[in-house]
Simulated scan of single mutants.
Amino acid sequence: MGLFSFMKNAGEKLFGGSESAEEKSKKVQDHLAKYNFDLSGVKLSVEDDAVTVSGEAKNIDEKQRILATVGNVEGVSSVKDNLTLKEALKIEIPDISKTMYTVKSGDSLSKIAKEVYGDANSYNKIFEANKPMLSDPNKIYPGQVLYIPQG
């Protein structure tokens, strides 16, 4: 559980500006659905520029991918994580917030992989973990938040 910050003006544009909180929640839910996440136990609520994600996620990978995908919507500045897991963790993760990485100017997946794994050639782990949000390993942008799976 936690609160993750995102760049409000970065990400996929879903909102037109005049939607109600319920309409925004529906748009974010529809956005998540196109990535084929198991959303059967997931609920969303939007208040201003904050999204609360609650319920049950399938596993830790899907949970982190859902949080990153929600945060990478233009107009969302924070995501409150109230998700629990259907599948128990197989490993202990000391700080779940370290599994998110905000892309900076000049970053590449190889550079990020070198920083987090010590091996630039491990970039594909990050790419695969963020599909289908990422369609090309060479197309990331500053402010985008990526899920970093455990090495």
Rank of each mutant, 00 (worst) to 15 (best):
Y147W: 04
K26Q: 14
K131G: 04
K86H: 09
Y141W: 11
N121D: 15
A113L: 06
E56A: 12
M133D: 04
H31W: 02
Y35R: 01
E47M: 01
S5F: 13
G75L: 02
D49F: 00
F15L: 15
S54A: 15
P142Y: 12
K114F: 13
L146K: 04
K13D: 09
A120T: 01
G11K: 11
I91S: 09
M133K: 10
V79I: 13
A33D: 10
G118S: 08
D95Q: 10
V53Y: 01
V103K: 05
L85T: 01
I91F: 07
S122A: 14
L134M: 15
L14E: 01
D49I: 05
G55N: 08
I91E: 11
T52K: 13
V76D: 01
F127P: 02
E74V: 05
L89I: 08
Y123R: 01
G151I: 08
V73A: 07
V53C: 02
Q64P: 00
Y147N: 11
D30Y: 04
V42M: 01
A120G: 04
K114G: 07
Q150D: 12
I112E: 05
L146C: 09
R65L: 03
N59G: 03
A10E: 13
K58Q: 10
A129D: 06
G41Q: 05
V73L: 09
S40K: 15
K80Q: 14
E115M: 06
S40W: 07
M7W: 07
K26L: 11
S40D: 15
E92C: 02
R65F: 02
K125G: 00
L44A: 03
P149L: 08
F15T: 13
S25V: 14
K90S: 13
P149Y: 12
D61P: 07
Y101K: 09
L14P: 01
D136I: 14
G106D: 10
L146I: 14
D38I: 07
E22T: 13
F127H: 06
Q144N: 13
K27A: 08
E23W: 12
E128D: 13
E22W: 12
L32D: 10
S25R: 12
G16N: 10
S54W: 03
